[in-house]
């Protein structure tokens, strides 16, 4: 429960309200993690928030977190100057376990900042690209200005043969890309549904529609994985803040397969 001490070594502005923090440990070795896991990031004197790790699992130093400025703690984090000490607890929770997709296709469906927890999974695929068949990334953002990791996506497409389809909800004058819901791209994306592993992260409504579309394409529910967001606090399954019926998402999740989640997603009381 005691956070480790890390120092901010650099910040990378991703969009107007989103920043990637590069952290280095001040008290020991780098923090090993699995793609999909999260940490509790502590801004001293302000508070603590759960943030997914967005860096490369094979290169955990520096440790990357992509943070959106939506509250007091995240504001303190995104405005932290190099040298600022922050606390890190974790890593916590389940990972994407991308290796389960070895030998087949991989479909990644991301919405908004949901691309950040998926970035480590994509980097893992890229590092063992020949182990996978077709790899498709379907990404939806609010507007062109809100698109995350545009340089990464260009690299993944050009150097690693990943099919990247980006769409936005609002197409301003001058935008020549796609406009529409990301889930509508699932129906026409080129992958073999029966031999695919699908990874989905974004707002819960978007994930529900994406999972439905993937399931309708024929991807088995056991092969569709979603990263769930709840009010993680302790990170070790004690406090109950992140409970989803019988699940504690900080330890059973955040990544869970759709066959386990489907009965729970439509229950408002959960």
């Amino acid at each position: 429960m005691v956070p480790r001490l890390f120092g901010v070594v650099r910040t990378y502005p991703d969009t107007l309200d989103t920043v990637t923090l590069a952290l280095e440990p001040l008290d020991g070795p780098p923090l090993a993690f699995r793609a999909g896991q999260f940490t509790m990031l502590h801004a001293f004197g302000v508070g603590e928030v759960p943030i997914s790790i967005s860096g490369d699992p094979t290169r955990p130093d520096p440790l990357l977190h992509t943070v959106r400025d939506v509250g007091a703690v995240t504001h303190a984090l995104v405005t932290a100057a190099p040298g600022t000490a922050v606390g890190v607890r974790g890593p916590f929770g389940s990972g994407w376990e991308v290796a389960d997709g070895t030998g087949g296709d991989v479909v990644v469906v991301a919405g908004g900042i949901g691309l950040a927890p998926l970035r480590p999974a994509i980097l893992e695929v890229v590092s063992r690209r020949s182990d996978y068949g077709r790899v498709v990334l379907l990404y939806g953002a609010r507007s062109p200005a809100d698109i995350l990791f545009a340089d990464d996506m260009a690299t993944w497409a050009q150097r690693h043969g990943i099919v990247v389809e980006v769409t936005v909800d609002y197409g301003p004058p001058g935008w020549s890309g796609r406009v529409g819901l990301v889930t509508t791209l699932v129906a026409r994306a080129g992958f073999d549904p029966l031999h695919s592993l699908a990874l989905v992260c974004g707002p819960e409504v978007m994930m529900r529609y994406a999972a439905t579309a993937l399931s309708a394409r024929g991807v088995p529910d056991t092969r569709i994985r979603l990263s769930m967001e709840r009010n993680m606090r302790c990170g070790i399954g004690l406090c109950g803040h992140c409970q989803l019926r019988e699940l504690f998402l900080c330890v059973d999740g955040p990544v869970l397969s759709y066959d386990r989640l489907a009965p729970l997603l439509d229950v408002r009381e959960l």
């Binding site: 959106r68 900042i113 949901g114 609010r142």
Partner: peptide, 8 residues
Amino acid sequence: LDLYGEAP
């Protein structure tokens, strides 16, 4: 619903 405009 402007899903991406809200807190994740």
